[in-house]
């Protein structure tokens, strides 16, 4: 019985998982960055609002 030799496709497996995990990581990081930027902006705006309110009451 002739048995075909299993081909060496290890590098393609590594490439595949590099792309899969890399894309998922990139998306997660983009979510975190966007979230942080929005938080910073929100905080700045609300501080500005609070300061304005303070100055008006004085």
């Amino acid at each position: 019985m002739v048995r075909a030799v299993t081909p060496d496709t290890f590098s393609f497996m590594v490439l595949g998982y590099a792309v899969i995990l890399g894309t998922m990581a990139a998306y997660t990081i983009s979510l975190m960055l966007r979230s942080r930027r929005i938080n910073i902006e929100l905080r700045m705006l609300e501080d500005a609002q609070a300061r304005e309110r303070e100055s008006q009451t004085r």
């Binding site: 299993t6 595949g16 899969i20």
Partner: peptide, 19 residues
């Protein structure tokens, strides 16, 4: 286990289909 005919690359299948 490693798939006999395709070798290691068959492991891509699991996450490929899941995605």
């Amino acid at each position: 286990p490693r798939e006999v005919v395709m070798g290691e690359v068959q492991r891509v299948f699991y996450f490929h289909v899941a995605a």
